[in-house]
């Protein structure tokens, strides 16, 4: 199918036990794709959590995913940030690169160009912290691979709509 597209969907849920399992179980049980998923409580007073899920599918599948999410009992709101106006997306990665000599210097130089920060360092390793789009992170990680990349930890995408409107 050629009309498969990547969508970023924001889901506001009650922060109660099992809610994440419901969302994940829905995706696995119905054969939908998860590219990334992030979750954290965003309103501790009313125990609301926000899930950002990046998925892909045909328009019919995406419509199904949103309808299926929306009928979960603890779900308050489902928004397709890809379809509903403009939004910004960011991802954070911690990237560990080990090496000495030229490779070590080159990794530091590239980190500077990509505006990655060094947050841990030993004589033979760096941990870089980097925030940006998924593509930017992918590019940096790709460059680090020949320079001694040993470990990556990524948050997955978080996203929010532009402008004054709330979800």
């Amino acid at each position: 199918m050629s009309d498969i597209r990547r969508h970023t969907i924001a889901v506001l849920v009650d922060n109660e036990p099992g809610v994440l399992a419901r969302v994940i179980g829905l995706f696995s049980g119905r054969g939908y794709n998860i590219e990334s998923l992030t979750v954290a409580e965003v309103d501790p007073e009313v125990h609301l959590s926000r899930i950002t899920v990046v998925t892909s599918g045909t328009p019919m599948i995406i419509e199904q995913i949103k309808a299926q999410l929306d009928r979960l009992v603890p779900v308050h709101a489902v928004r397709d940030l890809t379809l509903e106006g403009k939004s910004v997306e960011r991802e954070l990665a911690l990237i560990k690169v080990a090496g000495t000599g030229d490779k070590r210097i080159e990794s530091l130089r590239l980190a500077d160009i990509f505006r990655a920060r060094v947050i841990d360092s030993t004589i033979e390793s760096f941990v870089f912290e980097m925030t940006g789009s998924t593509e930017k992170l992918d590019a940096f990680i790709g460059l680090m691979r020949p320079l001694g990349l040993v470990d990556v930890s990524r948050t997955g995408v978080v996203a929010i709509s532009r402008g004054a409107q709330a979800l």
């Binding site: 036990p17 099992g18 399992a21 419901r22 179980g25 049980g29 979960l72 009992v73």
Partner: peptide, 14 residues
């Protein structure tokens, strides 16, 4: 039980 019945109920509670 809530884990097992999650996909076969409309909703469940512990």
């Amino acid at each position: 039980t809530t884990g097992i019945t999650r996909p076969c109920t409309k909703h469940n509670y512990l």
